[in-house]
Design a protein around this nucleic acid. Structure first.
Lengths: 143, 143
DNA sequence: TAATTACCAACTTATTAAATAGGTTTATAG
DNA sequence: CTATAAACCTATTTAATAAGTTGGTAATTA
């Protein structure tokens, strides 16, 4: 498997926030309740998103979280990359992977690279708006 | 990440065997040396492949492993599926996943299903022959 | 019958995922 | 000005999985 709960939960939260745009700041407690995810665990995920300016977090009474842009302006790729760290299908393609000595002769590397592009393109073409929107003709991704 | 060493090593072994077809049975020791993989770890991977008739294993002096078909007849998908168990990009799509209560309303499920098809198709279209063959015009996968 | 090989089950170690605990800081409503 | 509600922060724990090792047994053949 490739996408952990961190990435999947992050997506669900972002969709939740997209669907509650215009309601001001939405507190974590509310999101956690709606999404049935532990508040404390969500916290650690939202921290990443705030830190990278995908969200604004406002403290204190009346505070909560809010999107910084409109849903069309978030690619699913950007959200998953932040929370998962890396979306490569094999260790060989990871940035930190101490370069394998067999790279030059590896008969499988080109295949992994093609798959990686395929996946990257797939997620880059989908936006938060596609997932948050109700089902409409032309929207392949909505339920 | 998605494909562990088990699946990656399995592919390398199958390619190695494809490239040494016609040399009779190839002992594990030789494969392990060429591929720089621990003999004992390889053993556990080859066991799976033999058990599912992807390979024949012959014991005793002069024994070793051999493909049961020609390389064109193995899809990469079939090899990875056996050794990895499941290639689904998210837990939600795994067979054993205790069915999530949110399936009916999950705004991300259609996306995961599309990605899963994409990956399955990708691996199904590539055969062992594609990876084992030398680089030729029309072979996108060889080094 | 000795050497060589595959086969088998159990165990260990390392890494990562997933979640929890227990606080501090900031803002606002009253 | 104070109680409350919220985000923020660091460290720790637990669970699961990946990765590899140990120590054998069974079959085959030179």
């Amino acid at each position: 498997m490739m996408i952990s709960t961190k990435g999947r939960y992050a997506l669900r939260v972002m969709i939740d926030l997209a669907q509650h745009q215009g309601e001001g700041y939405v507190p974590l407690k509310e999101i956690a309740r709606r999404q049935e995810i532990s508040e404390k665990y969500l916290e650690s995920i939202l921290k990443i998103l705030v830190h990278h300016h995908m969200l604004i977090g406002l403290r204190g009474k009346g505070g909560g979280y809010m999107l910084t842009r409109s849903p069309e302006q978030y690619s699913i790729y950007s959200i998953l990359l932040l929370t998962e760290g890396c979306l490569a299908p094999v260790a060989c393609l990871e940035k930190e992977s101490k370069s394998c000595t067999r790279i030059a002769e590896c008969p499988t590397l080109p295949m992994w690279q093609k798959l990686d592009s395929l996946i990257t393109d797939f997620f880059n073409k989908i936006t938060l708006a596609d997932l948050a929107a109700p089902s409409l003709p032309g929207n392949d991704y909505a339920i």
